[in-house]
């Protein structure tokens, strides 16, 4: 009886260990898997050619990723430029000014924003943002745009990224000791001086980490961007131009993947690039966040 209990404990422990190790290794398995699958195209073309040439003609065997990379950068750039200031201002307000009751009320609403599926964001973008750009913003600047553009993608992505940056920033501000604010107030500093010189300074690494997390989310987001960014494989020259980000490229071409030689390899290489860039951002910001957690 006793022996059976202990045996069960040991076996279960081993099984759990296996599952844990497996989960810990998934990231590496993914990177490795995608790497092997993108070998065929890397064997034929040097990576620099693929990354820095613009011709995308799979039927002729030309796979130039440049327009997709610049498309991703443009859309992500616009998204981050909108998202960071708005999210930080909101996070500071909620953490330092808003009364507790209001804060507890608003936090779940902002988290709700994170729960809305990206395809619903896409639908909303098509219904609201795209016409807004086409009918008002582009004519205002005296140009024409279909509305499906870098700007549309950037706006929709920014809204998707808000809850991430706000959520992480709130945790960071929360970790700044209350007594530190008190020390500053006691010297006669105003609330805003205290925020500017003490809270933000103490929270800076964490705020950067939060922003980078938001950025990497925007970088890899697929469906919403696919639906509103226009998907024209050309380097955008203004925010009103259409763009064709990498994730949209992968998602859009899944049907044809198998029939054209090297096509699937090229798309999985795109996925690998996406994964590596996102991993890079995530690892940096997680290291910052772990350090902060450890120091408090």
């Amino acid at each position: 009886m006793q022996r059976k209990r202990f045996l069960k404990d040991i076996i279960a422990g081993r099984l759990m260990l296996v599952l844990t190790v497996f989960s810990g290794l998934i990231v590496f398995l993914m990177a490795l898997g995608l790497y092997f699958r993108s070998q065929p195209i890397l064997a034929v073309k040097p990576l620099s050619d693929l990354l820095f040439s613009s011709g995308w003609h799979p039927l002729r065997g030309e796979f130039g990723f440049l327009p997709f990379i610049t498309g991703t950068l443009w859309v992500t750039g616009v998204a981050v430029a909108i998202a960071i200031p708005f999210s930080l201002l909101t996070a500071i307000y909620l953490s330092e000014y808003a009364p507790r009751g209001l804060r507890e009320w608003l936090k779940p609403l902002i988290d709700l924003l994170a729960g809305i599926p990206s395809v619903v964001y896409g639908v909303w973008g098509v219904l609201v943002i795209v016409p807004l750009i086409k009918d008002y913003i582009a004519p205002f600047y005296g140009t024409f745009s279909t509305g499906y553009s870098v700007l549309a993608g950037g706006i929709v992505l920014a809204i998707m990224v808000f809850p991430i940056i706000i959520h992480v920033s709130l945790e960071i501000f929360n970790a700044v000791p209350y007594e530190m604010r008190e020390a500053s107030w006691a010297l006669g500093a105003t609330q805003w001086q205290t925020i500017k010189h003490v809270v933000l300074r103490k929270a800076l690494p964490g705020v950067i980490a939060a922003s980078v997390l938001g950025l990497s989310r925007a970088f890899g987001e697929t469906m919403a961007v696919l639906m509103v960014a226009g998907n024209v494989a050309k380097n955008p020259t203004s925010v009103l131009d259409p763009a064709y980000p990498l994730p949209a490229l992968i998602a859009n071409n899944y049907g044809e993947m198998l029939s054209i030689p090297l096509y699937d390899s090229a798309l999985l290489l795109a996925a690998l690039i996406l994964l590596l860039v996102v991993l890079f951002f995530n690892i940096i910001s997680r290291i910052i966040l772990v350090r902060i957690e450890g120091s408090v």
Binding site: V27, T222, L268, L275
Partner: peptide, 11 residues
């Protein structure tokens, strides 16, 4: 947690 869902799909 940060890996884009399209990468899960491709993988």
């Amino acid at each position: 947690w940060g890996v884009p869902s399209i990468v899960y799909g491709a993988f």
